[in-house]
Design a protein around this nucleic acid. Structure first.
Lengths: 332, 332
DNA sequence: TTTCGTATGTCAATCGTTTATCACAAAAAT
DNA sequence: ATTTTTGTGATAAACGATTGACATACGAAA
C-alpha cells in the first residue's frame, strides 16, 4: 500500500496537520520541522494523493488534448510542443485521439469531464456546438470553430495559400491547381481555399479545384493525384498539407514529370519533420511553437481567471513561405 | 457548478443511495426507477466525479504512457495504437514525453503516482533501476530493460538486422556498413548491432560500424552520413531506423550515388508512414499493432491480477523484411 | 508581568461517491 | 397466513487530504 499523509506524520513524529502545512506551505513552521517532514516524505517515497487534493477543490492539473491523430507529423509536433509547455507549468495532458469519430470524441469529452480536467485544447470537431457549450470548462480550439464562446487559434490560412499560389505563379506556372480538403463550412482551414481563389482571380487565371479528403488513405490520394497529373495539364499545385504534396512529388517522379521545371508544388504546414526529411519541398510554414504557446497561454489564463471575459475570439498567426526546389530551380 | 449525485437524486425523486445503486448496478432495482434516474442524469448532463470514485478505491482508468518523443513516426504510431486499444478497454492515457531527459522522466513518474494511475507503459529509460522498482505499480516496458521485475516487449531485433544484412548481401553488396545508435548496455535494441555482427561474421565479411546517436539532430546525422559515403567505399548500409535510412537515400541522391545499383540501403521500423510516403525504402517492419496489443494486454492483466506472478519476462515479436527499391532493382 | 509572535497539536468538517447496515413495505411464493 | 423476495430509503463510515477553529507552549519584546 502506498504511504499516506498520516504515515509521514508518524514517521516524522509530528501531527498530520503539520505535514499538510509543510506540503502546502502555510502557517508557522520551523525549519527543523520542515526538514523532518521532508526527510520522512523522501524515506517513504511519499506522493500526496492528487485525487484527494483535487476532491477538496484543488486543481487536478490535468488538461485534455483532443486531436484527430498523432500519426500526422503536424499534429504530433503540435501536441509535443503543447505537452512540453504544459509540463513546464506543472500540467499533464490526457491525450485523446478522436480519429475523426463522433462517438469517440463524445466519449472522450465525457471522460475528461468525469476526470475533472482543468481545461481542454481541441483540434478536432465532429460534434454539435451545444455539446461543446455544455462542457462548462475552459476550452481553446486550434483551427476549428467549436462554438461562439470558444476562442480559436489558427495560422493565417488565407495568406498561406495566397503566398503559395503567388510563388507558383512567379515560378512560371499558369495552370495552377488547388489540391486538398474539400469545403467544410465555418472552419478557418476553409480560408486556404479562399486564399487560392482570391489570388487566382487577381492573377486572372482559371481556378481548378481538385478535392481530396484529408482523411483519405494515402493510396487513394495517390490514385487521385495520378489522375490529376495525367488527365489534366497542371503545371502548378497548391496543396493544403505537406503530406499530400509529398505524394504529388512522388507521383511526378513516377510519371517522369520534372519538378520544378514542368510542375511546381507547394505544401502547407512546414513541420520540422518535413523540413528535415523533405527539404526539397517548398511549403507554407505554420508557426507551430507559437501556436502551442498561444493555445497554452490562453487556456491557462482562462483557467486562472475564468471570471474575466474573453479578450479575443480569434488569434491568427503569421505564416512563412519556405522556398525550396519544388518551386525554385537550383542549378548545381 | 457541475451537478452531483444528490442533484440527480432530487431531480429523479429518489434517494442518493438509489442513484448510486443505479450507477453501479447492484442491489434490487426496478426498471422504472432505473429509467427515472437515467433520465435525470441525461437532463442534468451528469457525470460521476471520477476523483471521488477513485478515492474510494475504484480504478482511475488512467494509464501513464512514457515515450521519448512522439515526433518520431514510430513512437507516434505506437502510442496511437496503444491509445486506441486502451480506449476500447475504457482506459485513458496520460501522455509523457520524456525527451530523453532524466529529470523530466523522474517528474513524470512522480506525477503519475500522485495521480494514482492504474499502470504505466514505458518506452524510455534514463533512470536507475531502483527508481522504477520503487514505483510499486504495474509497468510494462517496450524495448528497454527497466528492472528485472518489469516485463519487456520488443521486436526480434537480432533477426531484424540479420535479415537486413543478408538482404543487402544477396543484392550484391560486400562492403556493408552498420549505421545507427552506438552501444547501450542491456537494452534489446543492442541486439540490432549483434544481428549485424553475427551475420557479417557468417558471411566472412569485415564489419564496419558507423555510430550515430539516435537523438542527434538530422542535420548532424546527414553530415556524418555524407562523410561515410564519401570517405569510405560502402556499397550497403544497414540502418537502425528508417529516418536515418531516409537521410542516407537523400545524401546518396545529392552525391549522385545510384540506389540500389551502387548502394543498397535497409531501414528499420517500417511504420505505416514510411511505407506510404517512402515506399522506395526496403526496411525491417516491426509489428506495431501486435506490440501495442501485447503491451496493453500484459498491462491490463497485471492490473487485474496483480497477485499472480509474471508468466514471462520477455516477449519477442517477429519482424518482416519489406523488400523495395533501395535493395532491389526494378526494371521499368 | 504581560503580551505578542512563533510553533505545533487536537478536533472536526468537507470534497463527492461508495457501500454496508438497518429498516420498512409491497409483492410473490409457499 | 406466513415466509421470502424484491424494491427503496435513511444513516453513517470510509477514501486521503485540506483547512479553519481552537488550544497550548515557548521565547522574546514591551
Amino acid at each position: 500500500m502506498r504511504p499516506k499523509l498520516t504515515d509521514v506524520a508518524t514517521k516524522a513524529g509530528v501531527s498530520a496537520t503539520t505535514v499538510s502545512r509543510v506540503i502546502n506551505n502555510y502557517g508557522y513552521l520551523s525549519q527543523q520541522t520542515k526538514d523532518k517532514v521532508f526527510q520522512a516524505m523522501r524515506e517513504l517515497n511519499y506522493q500526496p494523493n492528487s485525487l484527494a487534493r483535487s476532491l477538496h477543490g484543488k486543481k487536478t492539473l490535468l488538461i485534455g488534448v483532443i486531436f484527430p491523430s498523432i500519426s500526422n507529423p503536424f499534429f504530433a509536433e503540435l501536441v509535443e510542443r503543447i505537452e512540453n509547455k504544459l509540463f513546464n507549468q506543472n500540467y499533464k495532458i490526457i491525450l485523446c485521439n478522436s480519429a475523426d469519430n463522433k462517438e469517440k470524441e463524445r466519449d472522450y469529452l465525457r471522460m475528461l469531464i468525469a476526470n475533472q480536467v482543468d481545461g481542454i485544447i481541441a483540434g478536432t470537431h465532429n460534434l454539435g456546438i451545444d455539446e461543446y457549450n455544455k462542457v462548462g470548462l475552459p476550452i481553446v480550439s486550434f483551427d476549428r470553430r467549436l462554438s461562439d464562446k470558444i476562442p480559436i487559434v489558427s495560422s493565417d490560412n488565407l495568406r498561406g495559400t495566397a503566398l503559395a499560389t503567388k510563388e507558383i505563379y512567379q515560378a512560371g506556372a499558369r495552370h495552377i491547381y488547388f489540391l486538398g480538403n474539400p469545403h467544410q463550412i465555418g472552419n478557418p482551414t476553409d480560408l486556404r481555399l479562399q486564399g487560392y481563389q482570391q489570388t487566382i482571380a487577381k492573377l486572372k487565371l482559371t481556378p481548378h479545384i481538385h478535392a481530396v479528403a484529408f482523411s483519405e488513405s494515402p493510396t487513394l490520394k495517390s490514385l487521385s493525384i495520378k489522375k490529376l497529373l495525367t488527365q489534366h495539364h497542371a503545371d502548378g499545385i497548391v496543396c493544403t498539407d505537406d503530406l499530400t504534396a509529398i505524394l504529388v512529388l512522388q507521383a511526378a517522379r513516377n510519371l517522369k514529370i520534372a519538378v520544378p521545371q514542368e510542375l511546381k508544388v507547394v505544401g502547407f504546414d512546414g513541420t520540422a519533420f518535413i523540413q528535415e526529411y523533405h527539404p526539397e519541398l517548398s511549403t507554407i510554414v505554420q508557426p507551430i511553437d507559437d501556436i502551442a504557446s498561444l493555445l497554452v497561454n490562453i487556456l491557462i489564463e482562462r483557467i486562472d481567471h475564468a471570471e474575466q471575459p474573453l479578450e479575443q475570439m480569434q488569434y491568427i498567426l503569421p505564416v512563412k513561405l519556405l522556398r525550396s526546389q519544388s518551386t525554385f530551380y537550383l542549378d548545381e
